[in-house]
Computed example of a mutant assay.
Amino acid sequence: MTAPIETTGSQTDAQPEAVLVGVKSQQIEGRSLGQIAWTRFKRDKVAVGGGIVVVLLVLAAALSRPLQALLGLDPNQFHQDLIDPNTTLPKGDFGGMSWDHPLGVEPKFGRDILARILEGSWVSLVVAFGATLLSNAIGTILGVVAGYYGGRVDTVISRMMDTFLAFPLLLFAIAISATLQGGAFGLEGLPLHILVLIFVIGFFNWPYMGRIVRGQALALREREFVDAARGMGARGPYILFKELLPNLVAPIIVYSTLLIPTNIIFEASLSFLGVGIQPPQASWGGMLDQAKDFFEVDPQYMVVPGLAIFVTVLAFNLLGDGLRDALDPRSR
């Protein structure tokens, strides 16, 4: 037999503290759920790219007036000298593109396309964000109440959702917008049109958020932390706003990023039909409406606002998909 190897005084007898001598001690820090979600989100390069585009679009919309002043552009200034009087089309190639007008000018009137794109960006985003906030507020409150209380409360709210979803939203929006074109509630002009669009789009879209929140609340109300809150004597309002709603932030954020582009398209559709934002105020849908008569001879005037809507909607959708995967990796 081989004699046992003596290990006295060797490293095998050393204490853990002795083995770690000379190694810089570092405190292990835990990560919050937000930090974990941010780490997952950063790994999705497509979603990060969409988020960057969204940030740039929001900045461009917020700074549209300063950018126009910096570039010396006016969305409502006519440049008749750049229009051919015989064809009413822009002079030169590519829709009259030049250093002074990087995206060219529109047919017939000669207004700068870049200036009108910047001017229309803040209108579209204000309407989309405002309508999303309104629909989220109504849908979240009614959805969490229906999901938590159940019974007759759930039945009444669910039937309300079904009723609103049965409305022909586009026709109803056209009727309301056309009725309130002149003035109402002490408002007129652009502020009235924006508020009407926010109300119509947001008020009739809340059931979509309500259904999502209701489904999540039905699952959360059976969880242990809700039972613990009940056992400690917490009442319904406290459980709704302190226990359930904080756990519904993730799906609300994700669905909001997917609802904003839908609202942008809806606003553009109403403006395209002539019952949304009224000229001379620039809007992407209004530009498409004016460009339809010149599409065959000057397609650039329709391509530019159409591309602006496409890029904006795509960026928000990519951001929403990335947030969904980051906040709920089991959904992948």
Rank of each mutant, 00 (worst) to 15 (best):
M1Q: 14
T2M: 11
A3F: 11
P4L: 06
I5A: 14
T8K: 09
S10I: 04
S10T: 12
T12E: 11
D13G: 15
D13P: 04
Q15D: 11
P16W: 09
E17T: 07
L20F: 08
I28W: 08
E29H: 13
R31S: 09
S32M: 07
G34F: 07
F41H: 06
K42C: 06
V46R: 07
V46P: 04
A47D: 01
L59K: 08
A60C: 15
A61H: 04
A61F: 02
L63N: 03
G72W: 09
Q77G: 15
Q80E: 08
I83M: 08
T87M: 08
T87R: 07
L89V: 04
L89C: 03
G95H: 01
G96K: 01
G96I: 01
M97S: 10
S98L: 12
S98H: 12
L103W: 03
L103E: 05
G104F: 02
G110P: 04
G110N: 12
G110T: 13
A115S: 09
V123G: 00
L125I: 13
L125C: 00
V126I: 12
A131E: 02
S135Q: 05
A137M: 10
A137E: 06
I138K: 00
G147W: 00
Y148E: 08
R152W: 07
R152C: 10
D154N: 12
T155H: 07
S158W: 00
M160S: 13
D162V: 13
F164K: 02
A173W: 01
I174P: 00
I174C: 05
I176A: 14
A184V: 10
F185C: 10
L187P: 03
L187G: 08
L187N: 14
E188Q: 07
L190Q: 10
I194C: 03
L195I: 06
L197K: 02
L197S: 03
I198Y: 00
G202Y: 00
R214A: 01
G215W: 03
Q216G: 11
Q216K: 10
Q216F: 05
L218V: 15
E224L: 08
D227V: 06
D227T: 14
R230M: 14
R230C: 02
M232I: 09
R235L: 08
G236A: 14
P237Y: 07
I239D: 08
F241C: 11
E243P: 05
N247A: 07
L248N: 14
I253M: 09
V254H: 01
T257L: 02
T257R: 02
I260A: 01
F266V: 12
A268K: 04
S269C: 09
S271P: 05
V275C: 07
I277W: 03
Q278P: 05
Q278N: 15
W284S: 01
W284L: 04
W284R: 07
Q290I: 09
D293R: 13
F294G: 05
V297L: 13
D298E: 10
P299V: 13
Q300G: 11
V303W: 06
P305T: 08
I309V: 14
F310T: 15
F310D: 15
V311W: 12
T312N: 03
L314N: 14
A315E: 01
L318V: 12
G322N: 05
L323G: 07
L323D: 02
L323C: 12
R324Y: 11
A326S: 05
L327D: 14
P329A: 06
